[in-house]
Write a protein that binds this DNA or RNA. Structure first.
Lengths: 332, 332
DNA sequence: AGCTAATATGTAACCGGTTACATATTGATC
DNA sequence: GATCAATATGTAACCGGTTACATATTAGCT
């Protein structure tokens, strides 16, 4: 293996000079620099970054904990993370946790064992910082997308409550009064906030909350399909359904059509996320657009600030209602 | 930082003994082992894996080069990679190359700079091994999914030609004779193989090839949408379209409906990949199912074999035609 | 007890860079 | 020419483990 000593020997200088010629070219004489560069070239030398990292105690890797890469929205967020990380010279260690807390803990420990410098957690915070990291070892960490109010680290999120309220108001403005909601997993703060927004809109319009119109899902198309099945089977089914993710909305629309009903003629459907497929579904989906890549980019920027010991502020990214063809005037 | 020396001091033994007590517990006396473990516990010691890796010259990280994570199919493959890697104690460094060869090269060099042990490339091989890695430094590398015939490394792929032939035969069996094809990027070997299969089926059925029915795309829904626009605008539009990816098929169906035509009544559409959305599209998509996770798992297994210096054989994974509602008897 | 072999533990070199500190060289100023 | 500062380079310690080799201890056997 060609290492810095070989290069030093070739160039007839010390290893320190080689190191400096490469890292701080200004402080070596032009002649020496030239000699070193030639030797580097001749030896085909590439620094062993493992050694560099070991010495500097920085890995320049970031751990990303994602519940499921298979989710289109997360895939986009990761895309943003990836890009931003690369621009700053960081690598991305991807961890598909499948919601498994043990796995999250295990992966977060990549930081304490020095295989990564920090963590971006795309799921609501779990208690691992309490049990798994003793001695008050606060991990350099950012919580993005799904965020709990009392997260013990900086966060980037959407104003989910306001966004959900907007969608619901949009449906109410179309004349709907029986509005179903296909939610996320029960314990998700995302779901909590969005349900708040949904209720805000209802009560502002004087519509009483009907618990039977709330169905839990897990953000997958299948769960949307199943939940919609429950809703259309109600004695008084909803005339509109707000789904907490586009993937569930797509599943829901499929189920509604299987029941012989049409979207939006019989039931309006709204989603959340604005994934790439949202405008190619039949009908194209009305939804809340989230800046997925921006989530990733901002999370990286914040984490690096933390790593550099700088001050960071929590961030709320903007959303917007995208009105397409899956929602229409209520006919009843 | 609590390091092995602190632990040694606490336990009243040498660092070598601590190291051995943890890695080769059998060769230290039970009493010593106990002492060491107690000291480890007391000090809250976690080995600095950066140091371990540095010493052993193994990072236990694998680089994965993926054209776009945003593609649902790749997301699934990565899921499989991720799982298999984790089971074997490897981490996954994800690189979204966006088809950029410079970026692929840059990331592959993580191996030569010792930040990763090997590479899984999900795109057809590019010439970087020739120009970027001099001195015949053959990277430990696996090429999966999109594979070229002369790949200079082990490969896992599908029999794309046979699969494309099956879909096409399925359409022919339904009475279609004007069958369009929405292809992948021009230079992709995937596209080449699948077009071969398409042509195999046509010529077996005595149907002449009509070049106008072939449209290039780039695997995104948008490109499928656009290509379908070209096809329906033909003086004699096809009665069926075979798309090289489900994402393009979904885009194509959207365009067909925008043209006031119905799927499958007016035009049958078949896809490729069997992504999660395939059964929730309207109508549910007839497609070729690929074992996406298995691609990932096998690629990891093969790469680790390579890293261990063992013999590996190229692999061809099975596919199957999934017949849903987007293809139907030709009415013309 | 005396000898050999097996077991247990310690010492220190090593991986490949980085960098504090020491030393050598050059240049500027009086 | 002497003095001092600035610049350039070299020496060696260091990061935190692993492991070859040396040494100490114990066990087994005659």
């Amino acid at each position: 293996m060609t290492n810095i000593r070989k290069v030093a020997e070739l160039a007839g200088v010390s290893v320190a000079t080689v190191s400096r010629a490469l890292k701080l070219p200004d402080i070596v004489s032009p002649a020496t620099r030239e000699k070193v560069l030639k030797a580097v070239d001749q030896a085909g030398y590439q620094p062993n970054l493992m050694a560099v990292q070991f010495r500097s105690q920085r890995t320049y890797n970031l751990v990303v904990l994602v519940p499921t890469i298979a989710n289109t929205f997360f895939a986009q967020v990761i895309s943003g993370i990836q890009e931003a990380a690369q621009e700053r010279g960081y690598g991305v260690l991807l961890c598909n946790t499948l919601g498994n807390e043990a796995m999250e803990t295990q992966y977060a420990s990549l930081v304490t064992t020095r295989q990564a410098d920090g963590v971006i957690q795309l799921r609501a915070f779990n208690p691992f910082s309490e049990n798994a990291f003793p001695a008050g070892a606060a991990l350099p960490m950012i919580n993005a997308c799904e965020v709990m109010g009392d997260a013990p680290c900086p966060t980037v999120k959407l104003d989910n409550r306001a966004a959900a309220r907007e969608v619901t108001e949009h449906l109410i403005a179309l004349g709907h009064r029986r509005i179903g909601m296909i939610k996320g997993p029960r314990r998700s703060p995302l779901t909590f906030d969005r349900q708040q927004g949904y209720q805000d809109a209802l009560s502002a319009a004087g519509i009483p909350l009907d618990e039977r119109l709330l169905c839990p899902g897990d953000f997958t198309p299948l769960s949307g399909y199943q939940a919609a099945g429950t809703l259309v089977a109600l004695p008084e089914p909803p005339t509109a359904i707000f789904c907490e993710s586009d993937e569930m909305a797509i599943g829901a629309m499929s189920r509604i059509k299987d029941a012989g009903l049409r979207v939006p003629d019989d039931i309006s459907v709204a989603g959340f996320d604005d994934i790439a497929f949202a405008c190619y579904s039949d009908p194209p989906l009305t939804t809340i657009a989230q800046p997925a890549e921006a989530f990733g980019r901002e999370a990286v920027a914040m984490l690096i600030k933390v790593l550099e010991g700088r001050q960071v502020n929590n961030l709320v990214l903007p959303h917007s209602l995208v009105s397409r063809k899956s929602t229409a005037q209520c006919r009843y």
